[in-house]
Structure formats: structure tokens, C-alpha cells
């Protein structure tokens, strides 16, 4: 299962580059790129959480942006009441997104396939429209966050490099935890249930419970991404959890290669770079983006960037990992 190979080398190199990025960027004086990277890493956390349910568990959620929103509002709403304690923000983000995942997951996971996709979508839109209708918290326009979460003297998120490293640390921690989780007993049950749920039930597993737990873990993890995104943008709005955001998260995951541990990082980076490049190139970049997406699915086959890397590892015709 663990390929120690060229692809692992590429991923290790990426981690080293990410660790070295802030000093390099500050040396070149292009602060914009640190912003872009921070944003990419925050989204990578969200995509990683999506990877846990889509890639490992086969639960295709089209409402994952809701958890980004919950995490961000967990920063924005306390800040609106002038509560800036980061531990409270983070605690709220984890607790609220886990609770929302538990409640909606309990309903969604009674169904499968297209039903599941639509119901996750509907629940995220429910949250979206609810926040749109609350004038107190800015409705459509959202709220500005004047100060970032405060963690005493330990960590000053106002400093761009500090925020960057906090995000990177969280991402690497999550990726490591996920690596442990998917190879532990719990992860094996989730993986088995993705590929053959009725067999898992016949083996005596109450797969509903395992899948729900997995869904809640994923939601809470995505809430952390929202916590960072609120802090990063100094702003919250319902638009963060619009369903097109959720679709973008899936897109990023698929570019990276759903199921592969490191796919969220490469997929998110590729997506944002593509967005930057196309929007600088043509006014109608959404058209290019859409066509590219369609072509990718219809002609490129599965595996994404990870799949391409794996082909580096294996000679043509050799047994590749799917």
C-alpha cells in the first residue's frame, strides 16, 4: 500500500518546498504568492477531509463547503461579539461542524448513490439559505472580521508567515492522521464498505455506524479549514458555502486523484494555478474551465495527477495501483 518510490520522492520534495516557501517568497518580495499558497493549503485541508469520505469511503458529498462555512462563521460570529479567543473559535468550529455532520449524516447515510449526493447538496443549501436570511450576521453581504483569532502569546496569526505555518502544520498533521486512520481497523472497515457494503454487513459490521463516524470526522476536519479561511480572508459570507464551492472541492480532489493521500495538495495547487492562469489569459475563462473539466473526465480517465505520478513508478504494463 505504501509506495516508496519516485512518486513518494515527488511528494517529499513538495513538502520541503512548502516548508521553505515563506523565507523564499519574502526574499523575492512577492507577498502575493504567499497569500496564494496559504489559500491553497487551507483549501487542501478541506479537500483532504473530502478525500476521507469520497476517496476512502465512497461517499460523494456535494455539500462539503457547508463545513468551510461553519468553520468560518465560528470565527466570524464570536468576533462580531468581540470574542477573539482562538481556542473558543477552534473549539466552536470543531464542535459545530461535527454536530452538523452528525445530524445531516444520520439522514444522508440512510441512502446511497445519487440520493446521497443530492441530499448532502440540499443540506448545505439549507445552511446557505439560513445564513442568507439572518440579517444580524450580515445576510448576503456577510461580516468583516477585524482581528484574527488570538492564541495568547503562542501564535500570532496576524503575521502572514505564522498563519501559513499554522495551516501547513494542520494540513500535515491531518494527512498523517488520515494515513494512520485508513490503515487502522476503522479505515479498513470504511474501505471495505466502499467497495462492498453488503459483504461487510454479512461479516457483522454495522457499516452505517462506521460510515457516520467517518462522515463526522471529515466534517470536523473541514471545519478547521473554514476556521483558517475565515481568519485568512478577514471575512465571512454565505457565499463560502454555496454549492458551487462544494463542486470546486470535488474538482480539486479529482484533479489530484481521489483516494490518494497527497492528492488534495497537488489537486488544490493545480486548480488554483489553472484559475490564475486562465483568468489572466481570457475574460471567458469559466468557459475554458468548464470545457477542460468535461474533457478531463471524458477523456483523461481516473487517477488525476496521482495516477500520472504512479505511472512514473511502474513500467508500462506493470501492476499499477488504482
Amino acid at each position: 500500500m505504501t509506495p516508496v518510490s519516485r512518486s513518494a520522492g515527488v511528494y517529499a520534495l513538495i513538502v520541503v518546498l512548502l516548508l521553505a516557501a515563506p523565507p523564499v517568497i519574502s526574499f523575492t518580495g512577492q507577498a502575493f504568492y504567499l497569500d496564494l499558497l496559504t489559500r491553497a493549503l487551507i483549501l487542501a485541508i478541506a479537500v483532504a477531509s473530502l478525500n476521507l469520505i469520497v476517496g476512502c469511503g465512497g461517499m460523494i458529498s456535494l455539500g462539503h463547503a457547508a463545513y468551510i462555512g461553519i468553520g468560518a462563521y465560528s470565527v466570524g460570529i464570536p468576533a462580531y461579539y468581540e470574542v477573539y479567543n482562538g481556542f473558543i473559535h477552534l473549539g466552536l468550529a470543531l464542535a459545530c461542524s461535527a454536530a452538523f455532520a452528525l445530524l445531516t449524516g444520520a439522514v444522508c447515510l440512510r441512502t446511497r448513490g445519487l440520493y446521497f449526493i443530492l441530499i448532502t447538496l440540499a443540506f448545505s443549501q439549507m445552511l446557505y439559505f439560513t445564513l442568507v436570511s439572518i440579517d444580524e450576521y450580515g445576510a448576503d453581504d456577510g461580516l468583516l472580521i477585524h482581528r484574527r483569532s488570538e492564541f495568547g502569546g503562542a501564535l500570532d496569526l496576524e503575521h502572514p508567515a505564522a498563519l501559513y505555518y499554522a495551516v501547513l502544520a494542520a494540513l500535515l498533521l491531518f494527512l498523517f492522521a488520515m494515513h494512520r486512520l485508513i490503515h487502522a481497523r476503522f479505515g479498513r472497515v470504511i474501505f471495505g464498505s466502499k467497495h462492498n457494503d453488503s459483504r461487510m454487513q454479512a461479516l457483522g459490521f454495522d457499516t452505517y455506524k462506521y460510515r457516520l463516524a467517518c462522515y463526522v470526522i471529515s466534517g470536523a476536519m473541514c471545519g478547521v479549514a473554514g476556521f483558517f479561511l475565515g481568519n485568512f480572508t478577514h471575512f465571512i459570507s454565505p457565499e463560502m458555502m454555496d454549492w458551487t464551492r462544494s463542486a470546486e472541492l470535488i474538482f480539486m480532489l479529482v484533479i489530484g486523484g481521489a483516494g490518494a493521500l497527497f492528492a488534495p495538495v497537488t489537486g488544490t495547487a493545480a486548480f488554483l494555478l489553472l484559475e490564475e492562469f486562465l483568468s489572466g489569459w481570457t475574460l471567458h475563462w469559466h468557459l475554458m474551465f468548464g470545457l477542460l473539466l468535461i474533457a478531463l473526465v471524458m477523456f483523461a480517465g481516473r487517477g488525476g495527477l496521482h495516477g500520472a505520478l504512479m505511472r512514473l513508478d511502474h513500467r508500462p504494463g506493470g501492476p499499477g495501483k488504482r
Binding site: 456535494l62 463542486a247 468557459l287 470545457l291 473539466l293 468535461i294 478531463l296 473526465v297
Partner: peptide, 9 residues
């Protein structure tokens, strides 16, 4: 999901 989202764009 991916293709029809692309179609929307």
C-alpha cells in the same frame, strides 16, 4: 457531478 458542473460553467 463533475461533467454537469462543467456544463453549468
Amino acid at each position: 457531478v463533475l461533467v454537469t458542473y462543467g456544463l453549468i460553467l
